[in-house]
């Protein structure tokens, strides 16, 4: 993979274009860069879409400043990248923290987002269903560990235990790809801070983009209760909870997820969110 660089929102952002068809932007999650997407997933999506893959600020080959990690600003990075690429409107898929960035993008720049796919993510704010203390402790005790040790530690809470036990070699390969360009501690800290600060719960009832909310029922990091809340708050949403899958659902059942996402993005159904549904979503937002 050869990444190109674009000067966007005051920083250099590394990106890559793959496939052909309508544009689909993929926004990666906490601490990860664009090399982390499962290769079969990218191949499957690239058959139908022009994929815009990029490294979030602070990760991969993009700049790693010491400020500007608020998710609204990362959404501005994405918007700037779309401007740079002359893409007026695109489908947007966000995974985990990337899902929060995708929500910011869709809420702040609704004209730029066609359809939205939110994988293993949350809306933030007081309704958030948090991970248990053991999981949080794993995610926060990474100081002094090498990139490989940190990735190994995180894997214990992001993959389903059964998948991890049966696919050790595959997970190790994936891990090596992810840490080839490790995310510095300050960038990881600032991403984490931005994710904690994030709250889209009040803005989501006005979201216009049809949205697929996808998660695994074994997700311990961002429990599936969050996906249910998202589906309640977004007027034109579809909720899919995949049994037996954890936070890394896209990696654990790549083919199934890719097929669900492609079907959702290519279907020619008109947006369904009428005013009644919006009011219901606003009532859910309290």
């Amino acid at each position: 993979m050869t990444l190109r660089r674009a000067h966007v929102n005051g920083i250099q952002l590394a990106y890559e274009i793959r496939g052909s068809g309508p544009p689909l932007v993929l926004v990666m999650g906490y601490r990860l860069n664009s090399r982390a997407w499962p290769s079969e997933f990218i191949t499957a999506l690239a058959r139908r879409f022009t994929l815009v893959l990029f490294d979030n600020r602070g990760t991969g080959m993009s700049d790693k400043p010491t400020s500007g990690y608020a998710l609204a600003n990362i959404a501005k990075d994405v918007c700037g990248l779309l401007d740079f690429l002359n893409v007026p409107r695109a489908h947007v898929l966000g995974y985990s923290m990337g899902g929060a960035v995708a929500q910011e993008l869709a809420c702040r720049y609704p004209e730029r987002v066609h359809k939205l796919v939110l994988c293993a993510t949350l809306c933030g704010g007081p309704r958030t269903v948090y991970a248990g203390p053991a999981v949080i402790s794993v995610m926060r005790s990474l100081v002094g560990l090498s990139a490989h040790e940190a990735a190994e530690r995180i894997a214990t809470v992001t993959y389903a235990p059964a998948y991890l036990a049966q696919n050790r070699e595959r997970v190790d390969e994936q891990m090596l790809r992810e840490i080839a360009e490790p995310t510095p501690l300050h960038a990881a800290d600032l991403q984490f801070q931005a994710f904690v600060d994030f709250d889209s719960s009040r803005a989501l009832p006005d979201l216009r983009a049809p949205t697929l909310v996808l998660t695994g029922d074994q997700d311990r990091l961002i429990p599936p209760g969050n996906a249910k809340i998202l589906a309640k708050l977004i007027p034109d949403s579809r909720l899919v909870i995949l049994p037996g899958l954890a936070h890394r659902a896209l990696w654990e059942a790549t083919e199934e997820c890719a097929s669900l996402i492609v079907d959702f993005l290519v279907e020619a159904k008109k947006p369904q969110a009428d005013e009644g549904k919006r009011q219901e979503a606003r009532a859910n937002a309290g």
Partner: peptide, 13 residues
Amino acid sequence: PVYRGHDIRYGDG
């Protein structure tokens, strides 16, 4: 509530 982190902005490590 400050002891429980209520209305406290999260840190950057």
